[in-house]
């Protein structure tokens, strides 16, 4: 075994944080929807993929990455609204597996539609000119775009936190998650809140798709592996906990990065090992609340 110099370890840490950024974004959306609606959204990876394709498509039209970053979350969130209103809503009160199966099927529909529209082979996509290339961050060269990704994630998380913790609507959302019955008694239309939350969750999935597109290009199946990883993150963080999703996302990113260094073959298994470990010690995840699955 060779020795690993500290610069390399630091580099690996930064790499892990950038990796974690994508996990954080995906897990937030997943966790938000689960926490408020107790819907396990298996189409989350498909929303992510649709967002990525939309981003690439829009970028091709406008040549402006910023347009993709703004328009795509709105458009994908719009699809989310339609899905919640007409497909998910009729299933409330029927047990957790109904919406699970629905969204599972929906993900196949999305993948197939994209295959029909854009072909089986993925499309190439590179970061916009301004964010291309690697920069020296003192410990070695690191892709500029990945630094941008960490920053963008921080902005999204902060905005979401302010929205939920500091606005009146956020207050209603939190109340609705804690006790929908009382909120309804107080004369608030809970179904409208759920609609908006589903829209926000899927919108963030779309946004993470756009942000991830320059990392790997786009392909119809790109959401499949990442969905499994996002679920692990939500479970580690505690289903329904936003803070948990952020901590767990970064943690998983760093764990993957470190195992990739010391035992590359184990990189994929490591996150599941981490999940098992966390569940053994804290069955509800790091920041999970009781009773949600009940």
């Amino acid at each position: 075994m060779m020795a690993f110099p500290p610069e390399l370890l630091a580099m690996q840490l930064v790499t892990g944080l950038a990796l974690g950024a994508v996990y954080v974004l995906l897990a937030i959306g997943l966790s938000l929807i689960f926490g408020m609606l107790t819907v396990v959204n298996f189409a989350h990876g498909a929303f992510f993929m649709v967002g990525a394709y939309m981003g690439v498509f829009l970028y091709g039209l406008t040549g402006n990455f910023l347009v993709s970053l703004v328009v795509v979350p709105l458009a994908v969130g719009g699809i989310g609204l339609v899905v919640e209103r007409f497909l998910v809503r009729p299933l409330y009160g029927r047990g957790i597996d109904y919406p699970l199966l629905l969204t599972f099927g929906l993900s196949y529909v999305f993948i197939e539609v994209v295959r029909i529209l854009f072909g089986l082979n993925g499309l190439p996509f590179s970061p916009p000119e301004m964010l291309q290339g690697a920069v020296d961050i003192g410990i070695g060269y690191f892709p500029l775009y990945r630094l941008f990704l960490i920053a963008a994630t921080a902005v999204v998380v902060l905005a979401l936190w302010l929205f939920i913790e500091r606005t009146a609507f956020g207050l209603v959302i939190r109340a609705g998650a804690r006790d929908p019955e009382i909120v309804r008694v107080l004369g608030i239309d809970v179904s409208k809140i759920w609609l908006v939350v589903f829209g926000i969750g899927t919108g963030i999935a779309g946004l993470s798709g756009v942000l991830a597109a320059p990392l790997q290009g786009v392909a119809p199946e790109m959401g499949v592996p990442i969905l499994a990883e996002a679920f692990v993150v939500t479970v580690v963080g505690g289903m329904g906990s936003l803070v948990g999703a952020v901590i767990a996302g970064l943690l998983v990113g760093v764990v993957v990065a470190m195992t990739s260094l010391f035992a590359p073959e184990m990189a994929k298994v490591s996150i599941f090992a981490l999940m098992a470990l966390v569940l053994l010690v804290r069955p509800r995840g790091l920041m999970g609340r009781a009773g949600l699955m009940g």
Partner: peptide
């Protein structure tokens, strides 16, 4: 000789070491 799991969606974690 770095082995990565088949179908990995991100390779960034393998690259710094190779780069070094």
């Amino acid at each position: 000789d770095v082995r990565h799991p088949i179908g990995a969606s991100d390779y960034s974690a393998f690259l710094p070491r190779i780069q070094a």
